[in-house]
């Protein structure tokens, strides 16, 4: 979030300059896509969320406040879309389990996203531990380590105070560490 955004680009986008809009989209689409992918874990869904995010961004650009970091604002929108997808998934999952228990039928489980080959045991362990974290802890870890954001930036994106971010990171790291220790112990 250190990169400065030219405010003229945003005003051009608001004015409806197609070239400026394309420039803005091309500049940030990979970041938004990777953010969505790291939260939802599914490429097709991440592409969908990226598109939805930019539609929202283009619509709400006039209401964007300059005092806020543009990237933080963009990430907030992308995160909101990703989380609403996760909520839908949760509801579907609950429905699926309910159906399964009521009718004793095997409903089709969603195919898990293709995972890149895990290099070794330790990587596999840390990957599993990461996925076992609850959503709140997982998001801060992803933002901190994958998107390499500072605690202050995460706090701005999530609208949560820095102390809470610190404690969530602390707890998450403890759990990840315990996962690795468990591997060492065996």
């Amino acid at each position: 979030m250190t990169e400065a955004h030219p405010s003229w680009l945003i005003s051009e986008c608001i004015a409806g300059n197609e070239a400026a809009i394309e420039m803005l989209v091309r500049q940030y689409e990979t970041d938004v896509f990777r953010l969505a992918l790291s939260i939802v874990g599914d490429q097709a869904e991440a592409n969908e969320i990226t598109q939805e995010t930019f539609i929202t961004v283009l619509r709400s650009l006039p209401s964007y406040q300059e005092k806020q970091s543009f990237k933080a604002w963009l990430y907030t929108i992308a995160l909101n879309h990703s989380r609403s997808y996760l909520r839908k998934q949760k509801i579907l999952e609950r429905l699926r389990t309910t159906l399964t228990t009521i009718f004793q039928i095997e409903t089709q489980k969603q195919v898990s996203p293709e995972e890149a080959v895990i290099q070794n045991d330790k990587e596999a362990q840390i990957w599993n531990s990461l996925n076992q974290l609850d959503e709140r802890h997982r998001i801060v870890v992803v933002l901190r380590y994958f998107h390499e954001l500072s605690v202050a930036e995460i706090s701005e994106i999530l609208s949560i105070n820095e102390g809470t971010i610190h404690s969530r990171l602390h707890n998450a790291r403890e759990k990840l560490r315990n996962g690795l220790k468990h591997l060492h112990g065996e």
Binding site: E18, E22, T30, R34, A46, F54, Q119, Y145, L176
Partner: peptide, 28 residues
């Protein structure tokens, strides 16, 4: 430190993918 150093490569391997470029026509 080990946790931190192991997190980044595994995340990068999983998520450092390129998106399908957004169609500007669809967006607008």
């Amino acid at each position: 430190k080990e946790v931190e150093s192991r997190l980044l490569p595994v995340m990068k391997r999983q998520w450092n993918l390129q998106p399908v470029p957004l169609s500007m026509d669809a967006l607008t």
